[in-house]
């Protein structure tokens, strides 16, 4: 078992000026009120014992939004690996921000018919940077991978013999999320922070929406009108909260 690693700090924009301040955008996965730990065994609401071995996702076009609707781009593409919590540090213009916008997945303009080889290896959409999140036989980025093992008997200590695998992608699954009602003041010498939490338990058992029983719905590679992929991605979009 691998514990949740120390929080990483990623310096995105080192420059600073008198008219800007530092914003830290934290990103992490939760299971209920606890930090979510990859490779730890959890009970889901169906009584299955599940262990998530991989949970990665593209998050695109992350913007801060001002009260007048104007936006500040924080990050165009980010490949999140929810094995690790991260803090992304940005230098942004001073002022008050009331919202955060982001996309789940890769926007259509960058998704299919794009060549990962055109990007430098440091880019999240590059061959190296995409870390296997690309369908080479068919083109297009895999927006989210959610993979692991399950024991449907729910017996503590029993081996987790069955697999689940959700590879979700394709343009119709791209989701734009908008978080409003924030009151974030950025000023020189006054660091601000935002925390983005993904509640993994709510992806499988949403407050409203379609619950996913991994005992019976274990695999999707995404397809047109794919009910399982749609449920997963709808739940995922609803399971993200900003504090």
């Amino acid at each position: 078992m691998v514990g949740c690693k120390d929080e990483n700090t990623v310096e995105e924009k080192p420059e600073d000026t008198a008219t800007s301040g530092t914003l830290t955008l934290g990103m992490g996965a939760k299971w209920g009120n606890e930090d979510f730990v990859v490779e730890q065994v959890y009970f889901d609401t169906y009584g299955n014992r599940i262990r998530v071995d991989k949970f990665m996702s593209y998050i695109s076009e992350i913007h801060l939004v001002r009260a007048d609707g104007s936006e500040v781009l924080l990050k165009d593409f980010y490949l999140a690996d929810f094995e690790n919590d991260v803090n992304l540090n940005y230098t942004v213009p001073s002022g008050n921000y009331v919202g955060l916008k982001l996309g789940l997945g890769v926007p259509a303009a960058y998704n299919k018919h794009e060549d990962p080889a055109q990007y430098p290896s440091s880019h999240p959409l590059s061959v190296a940077g995409s870390q296997g999140m690309f369908w080479y036989w068919n083109t297009g980025y895999i927006f989210t991978k959610f993979e692991g093992k399950i024991d449907t008997t729910g017996t503590p200590g029993a081996e987790l013999l069955d697999s689940f695998l959700f590879h979700i992608g394709d343009d119709p699954y791209y989701r734009e999320l908008s978080f409003t009602g924030l009151n974030l003041n950025v000023a020189p010498n006054s660091p601000a922070s935002l925390q983005l939490n993904i509640f993994v338990d709510q992806i499988l058992a949403p407050a409203s929406g379609t619950s996913i029983d991994l005992a019976t719905n274990a695999v999707t590679h995404t397809s047109e009108l794919d009910v399982l992929a749609t449920s997963f991605f709808d739940n995922y979009a609803a399971a993200i909260a900003v504090e």
Binding site: D115, A117, V127, F134, W135, Y136, W137, N138, T139
Partner: peptide
Amino acid sequence: GVPSLELQAL
């Protein structure tokens, strides 16, 4: 599904 020989090589 793959639109070009360049992309196919991957």
